[in-house]
Design a protein around this nucleic acid. Structure first.
Lengths: 350, 350
DNA sequence: TCTCAAAACTGAAACGTTACAGGTAAAATG
DNA sequence: CATTTTACCTGTAACGTTTCAGTTTTGAGA
């Protein structure tokens, strides 16, 4: 009926509306689909002038490669999966991370798929799903353990990933971490400088890597600066806030109550402070508190708290960049970074 | 050369590893690919026994339809896009919303793609991108304006969406909203009951729908309960916190300072309280504050604040459910909901 | 016994892309 | 002038799915 070989109503159909495809551009330029595809990829066997022409038309049509086509043909999903635990710290952690990641992904073909899950149940579920369905080119995980089953599995199965936190299992992989050891060490120093000697540490749950790091920093600090530890019982940064508050009140009323407290998490600090004030203690007078926070809010409430900011947004950026590089084959040992603590300007002056 | 007609090493290849496809199941059952496809869809022209057999093998293989294949063939992406403004409220709003949405999406084929953008620049960009690339089956947006260009565009182009907030432009669409009018109305009532008469409202930016709602509730409350307004100048819930604080301090030192303040946002309240205390005022004595919050944290800091919780997680659930229903063709007028304010148990007793 | 309809199943084509294995014409080589 | 390169370009097949238009088989009806 018409110039067969090519599908029938192509020109008409494409000229009207519809999303442009390689076929559209091929039709408009009079070239073959293959040529157009290769031209847009800047392949060496396509003439310079042809490439120019193809690019021009592609731009003008606003051509965007069809993701499903690419994915089906090549297996490349152009998706980064962010695996979130449902009990991640409340105060802005997740949103900061998401924003940081997307900031970097914004200039690329990657989309960000967020996959939350209940950590208590089984942290492997989302990772296995991604592995089984091939639904992402790379994965970002947090809440890392020293010996992390997810890290092992993804390494075995060759799925690129980046971790927010370090492991200690002889596997070299991309990560970004906060230097919690150094943070706690400096915190001890700060408290001792203020004349505090009996210090408590509100640490993370012990299964996580950063528990170890903060303990190491703590013990090194106690030794170096000469102070003693007041134990926090079973209270961690993830204990329900009312329990934390109750424990803090009891602790501060007790005989050997601490005169300095270091907290690893902003929300726990709120409960902590509520507890110690309920016990009649005064911040900056009877006791000093140092806290890390992922959003600048503690000093609005209590200017007396010494605060250190964790730039989670920056962490998101680092993780996204590292992961993309890993996907592109960069060696993992080149994709590791550790952020140093930064003391907030809102805290006390000294 | 083996049993040609079918691709060569299929049985072998699939038995070993590789992801199972319809072809795998077809090979194992001895059926055609089409039959398998239709059997899994429970089509009426497939025998009951055959369906059973196919389902059994599919389950056993852990078959999951290839998303790229489906998407290429049908255009269905099985993706929900969440369009976030980069300057969304800090305190947990984003993460709550994300978790709420994923909770619902968890049981479905849908994936959640998060697409942040700088609202100040151009809120249309992400919507246009999704429209142009067909990269999602539905969209969730927030920060809704009474006359919202995104709503208009998506309606025109027939892209299903749900909004976190209402519009007022004669378009019926799925939404979930918080009853800010009622919240502010009740807040005025509460303050008047406490004997407060000169009330200030820290409202959202005026371009947003919920500005109007809170103003209406405010004015209705003032009239009904007999109080007068103290204006907040140009301060809104999005003003940088230090400016809010400075303004609050100045305001509270001035002649006609308010004895009651209503705040629409938890983070703004922090700055507000810091300001009024800097002016020497005492919460619950010189002035009462009522605040909405999306995470229960204000009363840890100041038990004297009257707080109302907005369950953003629930909002996420509602939005996800509404959007999926809309995608399935349910009429938009059936997919609208408004959450009522709930007074926190942590606030003052009366 | 023959015809027809219903029930059950199936191959081909298409969605948009890329890898592969050519193809063609012009230019360089002998 | 014949032959080989070189530079550019192209058709086919395949990724996994669904739709369409059948085909085969079975059994009922005449």
């Amino acid at each position: 009926m018409d110039d067969s070989g090519r599908p029938r109503t192509l020109g008409a159909r494409d000229a009207v509306r519809e999303r442009p495809t390689l076929k559209t551009i091929a039709y408009m330029t009079g070239l073959g689909i293959t040529t157009v595809s290769r031209a847009l990829k800047d392949a060496p066997d396509i003439g310079a002038e042809t490439k120019e022409r193809v690019r021009l038309i592609a731009n003008q049509l606003g051509y965007q490669p069809n993701r499903a086509g690419v994915r089906l043909r090549t297996g490349k999903t152009n998706v980064i999966a962010l695996v979130l635990s449902i009990d991640e710290e409340l105060m802005g952690f997740t949103s900061q991370l998401v924003h940081g990641i997307s900031e970097v992904l914004g200039g690329t073909q990657y989309h960000l798929v967020v996959t939350p899950h209940s950590f208590e149940k089984d942290p492997m579920v989302p990772v296995r799903y991604i592995l089984d369905t091939g639904s992402a080119d790379g994965v970002i995980i947090s809440r890392i353990e020293p010996d992390d089953a997810r890290v092992r599995l993804m390494t075995e199965r060759n799925l690129p990933f980046a971790t927010h936190g370090r492991t200690d299992m002889g596997i070299v992989h991309p990560f970004h971490d906060y230097d919690n050891e150094n943070y706690v060490y400096q915190a001890v120093q700060k408290l001792v400088q203020k004349g505090r000697k009996r210090i408590a540490l509100l640490a993370p749950q012990s299964r996580f890597s950063f528990y170890i790091h903060s303990r190491i920093g703590f013990e090194r600090g106690l030794a170096d600066f000469g102070a003693t530890e007041v134990p926090m019982g079973r209270v961690t940064s993830e204990t329900p806030l009312d329990e934390t508050r109750a424990y803090a009140e009891r602790l501060m009323r007790s005989a050997g109550s601490p005169d300095g407290i270091i907290s690893i998490s902003g929300s726990a600090t709120i409960a902590l402070v509520a507890g110690l004030e309920a016990a009649g203690k005064k911040l900056g007078v009877d006791v000093d508190v140092v806290s890390k926070q992922s959003a600048e809010f503690l000093n609005w409430i209590r200017p007396e708290i010494y605060t250190v900011n964790e730039d989670v947004r920056q962490a998101g950026r680092e993780l996204a960049k590292a992961l993309m590089a890993r996907i592109d084959g960069v060696a993992p040992e080149l994709l590791q970074s550790i952020a140093q603590p930064v003391w907030s300007k809102m805290g006390p002056k000294d």
